[in-house]
Amino acid sequence: MSNWTFYHLPQTIEEALAILQNEPHSKVIAGGTDLLLELQQGRHAPVRTLVDLTQIAELQRLEVVDDILWVGAGVPLNRLIAWQPVRQYATALFEAASLIGGPQVRNVATLGGNVAHALPAADGAIALLALDAQVVLATPEGNRTMPLLSCYAGPAKTALQRTEIITAFQVPLSRKGEASAFRRVMRPQGVAIAIQNMGIWLRREEDIIADLRIAVGPAGPIPFRAHRTEEALRGKPLSEVSLANAENALLSEARFRTSPHRATAEYRIHLAGVLLRQTLQIAWERTEKEPEGSSLLVKG
């Protein structure tokens, strides 16, 4: 049996929603860089109808709207990272998206797919979580906006309905005194997904971390927001004492587990501490400058 039988390329969201509603055995596909492999390798049952979202103009929007970045869920990652405002105002997202896949994959892969695939350590999702992105959904009942984590039901399990489409992410702009960073650690053997990654956004007031958000993956069944760790640092200077407290808080709230052939829990715990210090430091230093990212070096 073929991996799919019918392939639709709707031009509008309305058209896509109509197909999804009329065909009970249909499923959306964006870049498809995860879904197609699962279909090809038999990890996903064949689908009768695929509804390809890549031709829908609305999903390709990239705009600064007031104080948010409007990032169309279907924008290929290479187009996203070439867009100056994302480098400037959402640096963590720029860094994460630059690290996803290789160049050919980034020419089709999308942020919408990254979130819909619902992996707990997806680089894009971790950055979006740190940036407090909101998800814009198109549903048969109309559009709605919700926090990122509401999209998740479990590891590789989305909370979205089959007939719902992620159309965009609303990413708040980092303003003066605010900055973000994303870091990850890979293994040279085996599947090219991060052993551990981290996204941090913070606002600095003089020598104090006035506010921050920390997202960690994998540290649980879904992307993890480290609220207690944030609490340990909020209102504190970036000192050894606060860092040590933050590390303890992170270990107390996050769940790091052993995955065979990838990393032991102990290694992940160690790396989480390393990433916490590094990513915080980078974000902190970035607040000293006007937000800009064009000279950022990206390691692959």
Partner: peptide, 9 residues
């Protein structure tokens, strides 16, 4: 743009 045609419907 370059894409991987083995996984491009």
């Amino acid at each position: 743009v370059p894409v991987l045609s083995c996984t491009y419907p």
